[in-house]
């Protein structure tokens, strides 16, 4: 087989040997950018990271969160699907009896060790109740101690900013609202996931 060779025309002649035409073209470009950015930084594409954040795609798998029902309780029914499917064994669930008989179970303990998590998203796919999602938009977790990476149930439920949410299609009842919880189960005993 014959190799395909692309011939690039070499620029030759006096024009190239003089350097100055090429210098002029280069200078026109760099000086243009310099003057445009000297007053007002018009072309600057930098995102000043900690202050400004880049738009995160709705499908980006960020830190997990636990969703709520319309009445404010956790959607999770402690079925252990996510814990079973998790390839890095970072989810730990302990089930408890839910006061609402139609729900049966709720997670008393729901811990995710974010240091072990590989962000594969299998827990989200496995969940039958859409109770765990990875759409918080938190794409970098940086803390100073290992314990901080152990996210407990309440942290996973509350610790996210709906405005920084990566998915614009989230439901309104996902937002935490204490009044909802009071109305939802006025006669509840025990400790529901409020």
């Amino acid at each position: 087989m014959e190799l395909k060779v692309k011939q690039v025309n070499r620029l030759d002649g006096v024009r190239e040997a003089l350097y100055f035409p090429a210098l002029y073209v280069g200078f026109r470009l760099t000086v243009k950018h310099f003057w445009r950015n000297l007053f007002g930084s018009r072309d600057v594409v930098t995102i000043n990271y900690p202050e400004e954040k880049r738009h995160v795609s709705a499908r980006w798998r960020g830190r997990h969160r636990l969703t709520r029902r319309e009445n404010g309780f956790l959607s999770c029914v402690a079925c252990y699907m996510c814990e079973t499917v998790c390839p890095s064994k970072c989810i730990h669930i302990e089930a408890g009896e839910h006061p609402d008989l139609s729900v049966e179970k709720y997670p008393v303990v729901f811990n995710i060790d974010e240091l072990r998590c590989v962000f594969c998203g299998l827990c989200v796919e496995a969940c039958p109740k859409d109770a765990i999602r990875m759409d918080t938009g938190v794409i970098s977790m940086a803390y100073t101690s290992r314990q901080t990476f152990d996210f407990t149930r309440d942290l996973l439920r509350d610790n996210y900013d709906p405005k920084a949410h990566s998915n614009p299609k989230y439901e309104d009842y996902d937002l935490p609202s204490p009044s909802n919880q009071q109305e939802a189960l006025p006669n509840s005993q025990g400790v529901p996931a409020s």
Binding site: N37, V45, N48
Partner: peptide
């Protein structure tokens, strides 16, 4: 600073 302006960056800040 100036090289940042030429290259559409912010530079040390």
């Amino acid at each position: 600073k100036w090289s940042a302006m030429i290259q559409d960056r912010v530079g040390p800040n």
